[in-house]
Design a protein around this nucleic acid. Sequence first.
DNA 1: TATTACACGA
Length: 461
Amino acid sequence: MNLLCELIEMVKVVSPDDGDVFGSLVLCGEDCNWDPVVFDMLIKAYVKANMIEQGFGTFRRSVEVGFVPSVVACNYLLNGLVKLRCVDRCWEVYEEMGRIGIHPNAYTFNMLINVLCKDQDVDKVNEFIEKMEEEGFDPDVVTYNTLINSYCRKGRLGDAFYLYKIMYRRGALPDLFSYTALMNGLCKEGKVREAHQLFHRMVHRGLSPDTMSYNTLICGYCKEGKMKESRSLLYEMIGNGVRPDSFTCRVVVEGYGKESKLLSALNLLSELERFEIPISPDIYEYLVVKLCEENRPFAAKSLLERISQYGYVPDIDVYNELLLSLCKCNYVAEALALKAEMVNKNIKPNIVTYRALIDCLCKIDKSMEGEYVMKEMVKFGVPPDTAICKALINGYCKEMDINRAESLLGFFAREFQIFDTESYNALVKVLSENADVATLMELQDRMQKELELQRKMPCVP
DNA sequence: TATTACACGA
């Protein structure tokens, strides 16, 4: 088996596109009489190497030369096809099995039932199962679990629990999968309490909950905003030696996030770190962004600095969130410093960065500084957009710097083909309130000429 | 030697 895997690896290296191991084996076989079982192994090896297409091809060609693959090889293949969602191919394999007399076993049926459950209605599945039972197949715990899961996903809890009861009678005792599926179904219906009761019953019956069953319940509590319960379950699981995974951490942190209890989330993460549970950078990033959204840019910044020590490198979007938050809270100096830091760290500020900065500067009557930033972005090859034009013109108008507003309007038109009616109207409005008609007419005249000049110019894409 | 499970809102 390992030898064959290596053989495939070799063929992949030598000729990745048309490494025809099967053909070579058949050719060699004429001289050295292979045990046909190598074809069986080849199918498995291909599936293991994630070369499902080749595995399927080998299956078909083996059958063509008269070899009958084992049911285990077929199951390997089916499993590979299911994972790639090649439903039609699954049924091709199944039909071929029937045609050449390979008897499907419980694994085969369970995988096929799973396929049916995923893309058919459950009643069709039951027809299939009845037919299988006539062929001597006895539904086992996996079959029941698959069905229970399918019912729960469709909100048919009554049917799911009916099967759960049947399981005892049929001697297929419910396992962790069964309970987790049922708890998940209950949680989806907003019945976390009942799910928790079921959890207790499960423990009482001697099953030890694993990460998945804890996660299901914790997730259910989080969805209902019951963070106290989530938290105590999290501690319970750690106490029982079940390690929280990235899903657990994320669900709880996001649960706190939804309740705007970011401090609790931060505290929890520190606790988890103390238990040496690895926290993925995504979770920290979520918190950083969330703190920004809740107008706590300094908390966000210090968190960012803390996790940077672990080697986390924020991307432009995270930086922008922080910068936007600083701007929104009117901490312009800090925002400008952050932009400088970005440049230092070789993270190029983009249009979003500049738009926020300019907008903020203009709003606090520092349009001149805004214009300075605008010039900088142009220098760095980031062209300004209409929003930036609006911000600057409105800013200058508010500061009654009509001349700069007008010349800037011309600049945007000339250099960047930005003709913003709103900005123009703002200028006209402030002028009409503060100047005589003649001045106004002169402005309109000049702008008109500017426009005509633009139209005559060749279009620059 | 194999089969079934937890959430994001695309």
